[in-house]
């Protein structure tokens, strides 16, 4: 059994991977029912830090100042098209920029968290679905949240 390289977790060093926030979207159902909220499922990679609302359009992601965030999208059917069109968030908290995976036109967005949060900060994502030209914005809003209270001493 090889030694498991786990020491880094005990240190206060930043995780090397960004905190990824993934939107799973069923574009066919969203377009057919004209309801994006019911066909949108958010997840992030920070469950261990206390993120909540997994599988809903109101994910609360636990983040800290200096964290790199990455937003991307997975469509429920590979033949269908979904892209993250825009992110609206208080620029004092984060300023997301649009990027593509090198050599493709698949979009992701990244940002750095500028300050530690005491209150959850809701933000808005909008999506392009299928061949419709105007972006869709869900009514429910995900949020960034600061460290959990019980975790404060340890961090």
């Amino acid at each position: 059994m090889p030694p498991r390289n786990r020491q880094s977790e005990r240190q206060p060093a930043r995780p090397v991977r960004p905190v990824t926030i993934t939107a799973v979207v069923d574009p066919v159902a969203a377009l057919a029912s004209e309801n994006l909220d019911d066909n949108l499922y958010f997840y992030d990679t920070n469950k261990a830090a206390g993120s909540t609302g997994f599988g809903t359009p109101e994910l609360h992601s636990r983040v800290r100042k200096g964290d790199t965030l990455l937003w991307n999208v997975i469509p429920l059917e590979c033949e269908t098209y979904v892209a993250l069109a825009d992110i609206e968030i208080d620029p004092r908290i984060a300023e997301p920029t649009r990027k593509v995976y090198p050599g493709t036109d698949i979009v992701f967005w990244t940002a750095e968290v500028k300050q530690d949060l005491t209150e959850p900060v809701p933000y808005r994502l909008s999506f392009l679905l299928g061949t419709v030209g105007t972006p869709f914005t869900p009514t429910a809003r995900p949020a960034l949240a600061g460290p959990a209270n019980e975790g404060k001493g340890g961090r």
Partner: peptide
């Protein structure tokens, strides 16, 4: 989750 998505 948290990887390059399968859409590439």
């Amino acid at each position: 989750l948290g990887s390059i998505p399968p859409t590439v």
